[in-house]
């Protein structure tokens, strides 16, 4: 039972990430930097919590602001680039971020990781991690509702139009750059939230939690679930978290398990691109020209 709760908590945290990435993707931005921002949020929370002993909510807000700020910093130059180059630039950022997590010993303690990260003070004790499940689910639901509201609003319509034919949107008199920037900033905020939740839940983080592959993984979740479909993102997240866990029961040695996971991810990407590029629940063929 504890195990299932653990899985659900992970799904919840990653769902926040994939929903926010889906939002960004709905604007036509393919960002492979989400994992890096996630890591940034996690590390900021960890440092604030472990070193400065700030309470949960304060640290969460600060880390989310940090990721928003960094997201904007990344987006300002990157959003000028065209699709493929944008993806590469964000991926470059993800690699740099991982190197920083690994090497900047002063702040991140590198490969030793940060331990003893405090979580929120819950009013009363419940069975195991149920409180965390409640907390994470609450945040995930909020993210989902906000994202849906956004996508269905006039703002969302502009965003989706940008992903389909940006030139027309500019032609109709809107500053597409600004729309994209704000969307990206908004999504970056939620990576901080997810990072804080992750940090406090695991109470130990390590650079290997935030590899460039993590950013790719989150993108896989969005692609598989379907761009533009928020429910799809939740589905995609569940798939990509549950399948590796299921494989765990096959008792493969750990080195083989990691490679098998990645192999399946790669295979999934290929099959999806071949047969269902819009994802399982994707409504918009926004990846097709």
């Amino acid at each position: 039972m504890d195990y299932i709760i653990h899985i659900l908590i992970l799904i919840g945290i990653y769902a926040i990430l994939s929903i926010s990435l889906n939002l960004v993707a709905s604007a036509g931005i393919i960002s492979v930097a989400h994992g890096a921002l996630f890591g940034l949020g996690a590390y900021v929370y960890a440092v604030l919590g472990a070193t400065f002993h700030l309470p949960f909510s304060v640290a969460l807000v600060f880390s989310s602001l940090a990721t928003t700020f960094t997201g904007i910093l990344l987006a300002v130059p990157s959003l000028r680039l065209k699709g493929d180059y944008l993806a590469l630039a964000t991926f470059g950022f993800a690699i740099i971020a991982y190197d920083i997590f690994d090497n900047l010993l002063l702040f991140t303690k590198g490969p030793m990781g940060i331990t003893d990260i405090q979580g929120p003070d819950f009013p009363f004790q419940v069975h195991g991690k149920t409180w965390y499940l409640f907390l994470v689910t609450a945040f995930a639901v909020v993210t989902y509702l906000l994202a849906r509201r956004l996508l269905q609003s006039p703002w969302g319509r502009v965003i989706r139009a940008i992903s389909e034919k940006e030139s027309l949107v500019t032609f109709s008199g809107r500053n597409t750059y600004r729309y994209k920037l704000v969307t990206f900033a908004f999504a970056s905020f939620w990576t901080g939230v997810a990072g804080s939740l992750y940090s406090s839940y695991l109470s130990y983080i390590h650079p290997s939690n935030f590899l460039p592959m993590t950013s790719i993984l989150i993108l896989c979740m969005v692609v598989a679930g379907g761009m533009g479909s928020l429910t799809g993102s939740i589905l995609g997240t569940s798939i990509f978290i549950c399948v590796p866990e299921v494989l765990r029961f096959l008792n493969l040695p750990s080195s083989v398990a990691g490679n098998t996971n990645e192999l399946l991810f790669g295979l999934a990407l290929i099959l999806f691109m071949l047969f269902k590029p819009q994802g399982i629940l994707g409504k918009y063929l926004s990846l097709n020209e």
Partner: peptide, 15 residues
């Protein structure tokens, strides 16, 4: 397919 689809598919191949 758009170049993004190729990109993702080729990423799959690499993996």
């Amino acid at each position: 397919s758009s170049s993004l689809i190729y990109l993702i598919a080729s990423l799959g191949v690499l993996l």
